[in-house]
């Protein structure tokens, strides 16, 4: 290939990549008018422009708080009947009716409300998906090959039902590691030492699944970070 042809090919390739980037950028900004930045509020419907913010700019803390206050005010204006604070604190919306008054049937949650949209089917999906994830952790916990142990030793051989793993006591300082450890650090310590494997990356699906299994075995235990 001659030098001029090579330059032409590089130029064409550069133009193509730039074109793709431009299209992607346009898609990202499609809800914002030119020169402004819009956000979608947490009802998933309402869009609003952030006053005074230009694309590529970053708000300082004071202006960011002012913008957040505007978002919430706007959200409340669009969702006047939604119990924002009550939804956060998870307390009943109304005190129980007095025993003497005519008891009314509780109102059906409105399907449009942000915090009332979940159906029984949704809850079942959450439950089944969570159980599947925990079960995968259970499988890996009991199988040296699954997490990369090289001598056949698996986690359950010292920790039946994840006993003595006490995930509720992390984070805590481990003298021998010379730092504050999370549960995953101790899982990796065990993988490296008694099972002679290689540590898993923090986002490794096997590590995540094992964390899920170990935590699931301690349901209802009080969280006590730092306890030894």
């Amino acid at each position: 290939m001659s030098r001029s042809k090579l330059i032409a090919v590089i130029a064409l390739a550069t133009a193509t990549v730039a074109g793709i980037l431009q299209i992607r950028l346009a898609a990202w900004q499609e809800k914002s008018a030119p020169g402004t930045v819009s956000v979608t509020l947490c009802d998933g419907k309402t869009d609003m422009t952030v006053p005074g913010l230009k694309p590529g700019e970053r708000l300082d803390r004071v202006r960011a708080q002012a913008a957040a206050d505007l978002f919430l005010a706007e959200w409340k204006r669009h969702n006047p009947d939604s119990p924002w604070l009550l939804a956060q604190s998870n307390t009943p919306a109304q005190p129980a009716p007095a025993a003497t008054s005519q008891a009314k049937a509780p109102a059906e949650p409105k399907q449009s409300e942000t915090y009332s949209r979940f159906s029984e089917r949704d809850k079942l999906v959450w439950k089944l998906e969570t159980e599947k994830f925990i079960q995968e952790g259970n499988r890996i916990f009991h199988n040296a090959d699954a997490f990369g142990g090289t001598i056949g030793v698996s986690c359950d051989m010292c920790h039946p039902n994840a006993a003595n793993t006490h995930p509720e006591t992390y984070p805590k300082y481990q003298v021998q590691l010379q730092r504050v450890a999370l549960l995953r650090d101790m899982i990796n310590w065990c993988i490296q030492n008694p099972t002679k494997g290689k540590p898993l990356a923090d986002d490794d699906p096997r590590l995540r699944a094992m964390e899920a299994y170990i935590l699931s075995q301690r349901t209802g235990k009080a969280i006590e970070p730092g306890k030894h």
Binding site: C158, N161, A163, N164
Partner: peptide, 8 residues
Amino acid sequence: AWPWPYAP
């Protein structure tokens, strides 16, 4: 060889 935890 290895210790077991106490039963719950």
